[in-house]
C-alpha cells in the first residue's frame, strides 16, 4: 500500500471506519515514515492546548437579559428613521417656500418709492377730480341760467 498521507489526519482523529481504518492501521504498523508523520502531527496538535480557556461568567444570563431589554426599549425604525426624515423634509419644504415668497415679493425700498408715487398719483387724481367737478358745476349753472 502506498503511504496514505491524506488519510493520516482522519486516522489520528479516529474518523476512519471499517476496511479503510484496518488498511491504514496495517500500513502504519509497517511504515516508519508514516509513524513519524503521525507523531509529528500529534505533537503539534497537542501544543494547541496552550491556547487555554475563557473564564466562566456566571452572570452571562443577566447580561443577555439586559441586552434583550435594551434592544426592546430601542425605538423602532419608524421612530428612529421616519420621524427625523419627515421633520427634515418639512423643514426643507418650509425653507423652500420661504425662499420662493421672498423672491416674488416687492422689496421694502420699492414699497417706499411706490408709496410716494401713490401719494403723487392721489394728488394728481384729486386735482383732476376737482377740475372735473368744477367744470360740471359750471355747466350746471349755465344750463340753469339758460332754462330761466
Amino acid at each position: 500500500m502506498k503511504c496514505p498521507i491524506k488519510k493520516l489526519s482522519a486516522y489520528m482523529d479516529g474518523e476512519l471506519s471499517g476496511e479503510t481504518r484496518r488498511a491504514v492501521d496495517f500500513h502504519v504498523s509497517r511504515c516508519a515514515d508514516c509513524r513519524m508523520r503521525l507523531k509529528r502531527m500529534r505533537l503539534s496538535w497537542n501544543i494547541l492546548d496552550a491556547l487555554g480557556e475563557a473564564q466562566d461568567n456566571p452572570y452571562l444570563y443577566t447580561r443577555v437579559r439586559s441586552a434583550l431589554m435594551t434592544r426592546r426599549e430601542q425605538p423602532r425604525w419608524r421612530e428612529r428613521v421616519l420621524l427625523p426624515v419627515t421633520a427634515l423634509i418639512a423643514l426643507a419644504l418650509g425653507l423652500f417656500l420661504g425662499s420662493l415668497m421672498t423672491r416674488h415679493s416687492v422689496p421694502v425700498s420699492t414699497l417706499a418709492e411706490n408709496d410716494s408715487y401713490t401719494r403723487e398719483l392721489e394728488t394728481a387724481a384729486g386735482s383732476m377730480l376737482g377740475d372735473l367737478y368744477m367744470e360740471l358745476a359750471s355747466q350746471q349753472l349755465v344750463s340753469r341760467g339758460n332754462g330761466k
Binding site: 491524506k6 493520516l8 489526519s9 482522519a10 489520528m12 482523529d13 474518523e15 509529528r40 502531527m41 505533537l43 503539534s44 496538535w45 494547541l48
Partner: peptide, 14 residues
C-alpha cells in the same frame, strides 16, 4: 477531512 488535513500540516510546520 481535507481542511483538517491541510490545517494539521500547516500547524506542524509553524
Amino acid at each position: 477531512e481535507s481542511r483538517l488535513h491541510r490545517a494539521k500540516l500547516a500547524l506542524q510546520k509553524k
